[in-house]
Nucleic acid binder design. Structure first.
Lengths: 244, 244, 244, 244
DNA sequence: CATGAATGAGGCTTCATTCAT
DNA sequence: CATGAATGAAGCCTCATTCAT
């Protein structure tokens, strides 16, 4: 596996704002045979049942009330235990957020892993479709939680760094696929990868927020069309007139 | 106003999340010379530059600390004023946010108006370029503030409604242009408009956050390429295999 | 419930201003064993004597400083608690006031209930004496608190409505007794009842504030005299000369 | 003039709460030939027109908003001048309250003076009627302002002392009249006077708040009846059974 | 480990009052 | 004397977190 983790990413703090779900794509593709967990039991043994309840409760509360109004007390109540107990499992509110974010990404990874188990298609179009389907699948879960996690909440620097890493991994992976593909011709494969990833992620996220069409398959087709058109486009290097 | 699937847009709460800058495009193109706000009344004397100081301070503080940690006291301090003075100019924190949002949109509108005064290009490519340039120009200001305003902060219902209206205006306008264009062929012009607007907005916003390339003209070319490829794509109606 | 000009009372906002203590008389006489409030739920454990401490502290603070200067922080301090704890027991300052008011009325009711358990006297004079004694007993507690509660503080509409109801009950009850009495002759029994109630309440309240005589039995005798004279007075219907 | 200003009054701070209007009665009766001002021009020369406007504005604002919500800024606005100017005429909010209170009493005095110029009636009944009419007349002006002034507002100690003096003067004056009257027989004339004054004042005040009857003349008759019955009552010295 | 009462820093906002012009 | 911008103490209330039981 070649150039991963190049920190092309600028200094702006919020780059990775909403790539989260797809980040998993990168993680999964790079490590397809290296799943973080032996993906076996649906309920991992690492966490007590109580811890699980808290996480679920936090997700529900954040979805319903947003980050600011999602108080630890409310979460404890929703989880059916005392605030004191909650703090026995998580040292603070940020830790909850962190856990939720990790799970979010992990869930995305599972989606991708499942897809890849059926084999990565060889046809470019099919790969794009798979990519889009993965994004849709990952977002379907809870677009509102996604928003709370990646837009509304303050993210601690540690999480920020982690997300940077994941995002870069994804972009790099896609860039490699692009470089290897015979039928596309990018002068800057990494930038192309960034466009693909960003477009897919953004539009998918927006779809669930805006619902520009009620038929999700229509949206899916259109997004695939957009991405395919971009990939297939014959590139010239004459700059467009004007410019900022 | 001709055909276009107006109001197809669902009731989801976050549609207008980040279209903000471009919203002005729609408003301006529909020839709206009516400013969104009474154009900041000249007020008495010139003491109203205190108001200006507050707004600027608020922008800086929100950019640096985000919405939640951007306290009114911090803003007052940043403006070099007592908290009491701040409240003589703005009735509450939300009013500051509102002012900032309106200015944001208004600034975008100015960019568009300036562009249109030089005439709407007849060539499709040039139109796309103008669209992208406008988005870039509008975003150049402060993408982090944009994020705070449209993603992180709670937006009052009144503002939400206003943004919806503007967004619809923009999408409708683009949809009409698409319908009238001889060389593109959309089965659903409004959805196509939504894709164009969303893609442009999202990617522009992300560009300033991520800086996937340090040369903005490279980014600009690539985005134009993406949009043009999408517009030019020959459409078939055979659904892609798979699907979610 | 027989004759009586029920609901003649106007809509003016302050009717129930200071009848509070006696209101219980009406409630009790109409045989209302239903307590005004769920009888202060036993709550959990015994930590609810914290609640008691707060209420007592609030009473002391309001008595000493009045409503406006009786700040929640002062009350918390007086109760030996942090401000946060106070707000765990009462959602806001008004709730404290409400609790105090209800207790005030409830205490009055207890006084009356105790009196009635010894039977309502048949002799008119004795009834008047009982009435006066009840008022004195009820007011003995704290006339300054009474004033804060019923004159100085803003009363929420819900409380206002409740007090109206209670006051009307009292006046109606007295009016019926007057109608049924053989030795008195009122053209308007309800107005007579209003005079009796208002006079008793006002003078009792004032007694504790003014102490026009240090011997409370002297005051008691005089008030009974006043009320009895009023009841016994032979009524004519010739209006007095003059008038406003 | 005999025993005036005896400080029988207890230490409770709020005795004089609402006697205000009638206080003037005492003042006027004692000093009938000594009016505070040569009662000539309707607008005294002592105050500038501006000061007058402020006082009127304060009255209106307090009536409409109550004491707490009657801010100095609102008063200045209502008076049509700047807050700075207001503070050139009154050193603080309390001073406004003081002025208003003094005027309130003075207005009451004017009512009494006017009445007395027509001569104090010799008949006891007529005197009672005059007393009641005076109280009604004084209260008619603004019962809500009265309430703000004497119940809702914090009164500075200086004002408290002043009111004490006035109230005592009134009670003493009435006590003297009672002592001199042939047809009444009080063992404690001062206590009797206190009853008369307190009853009249309280019930009148309550009448305007409660409106137990819409016909003011009915109320007037009944109050006269009450007071007359009290004065005429044949007194025995056997204490009533019971007692607190 | 669970509980939930207690804590208190800190946020938003008001308003009497001052002061430079 | 008028003006009104500026001040800042102080009030109400929230909520993440701690700690005694």
């Amino acid at each position: 596996m070649s150039g991963s983790l190049r920190r092309t990413i600028g200094s702006r703090q919020d780059t990775e704002r909403s790539l989260a779900f797809l980040l998993a794509f990168g993680a999964a593709m790079q490590g397809t045979p290296k799943p973080l967990r032996p993906r076996k039991s649906p309920r991992q043994k690492r966490s007590s049942d109580t811890r699980e309840r808290i996480v679920q409760a936090a997700a529900r509360v954040f979805v319903e009330h947003g980050y600011a109004a999602g108080t630890t007390n409310r979460i404890a109540e929703e989880a059916g235990l005392s605030i004191g107990s909650l703090y026995q499992y998580f040292p603070n509110k940020d830790a909850l957020l962190l856990e939720l974010t990790h799970r979010h990404i992990e869930e995305g990874r599972q989606v991708v892993v499942a897809a890849l188990e059926r084999g990565l298609p060889s046809d470019c179009n099919d790969r794009v479709a798979l990519f889009v389907d993965t994004a849709l699948e990952a977002h379907r879960g809870d677009s509102r939680l996604h928003q709370v996690l990646f837009e509304e909440s303050p993210r601690p620097p540690a999480l920020l760094a982690e997300l940077h890493t994941l995002q870069n991994a994804l972009v790099d992976t896609i860039a490699e696929l692009l470089s290897a593909a015979p039928d596309v011709d990018f002068s800057d494969a990494r930038l192309g990868a960034w466009f693909l990833v960003s477009t897919t992620e953004s539009l998918t996220h927006r779809y669930f927020a805006d619902r520009p069409t009620s038929d999700i398959t229509v949206f899916r087709e259109e997004l695939i069309t957009l991405l395919t058109a971009y990939l297939r486009h014959e590139r010239t290097n004459e700059p467009t007139a004007g410019g900022s």
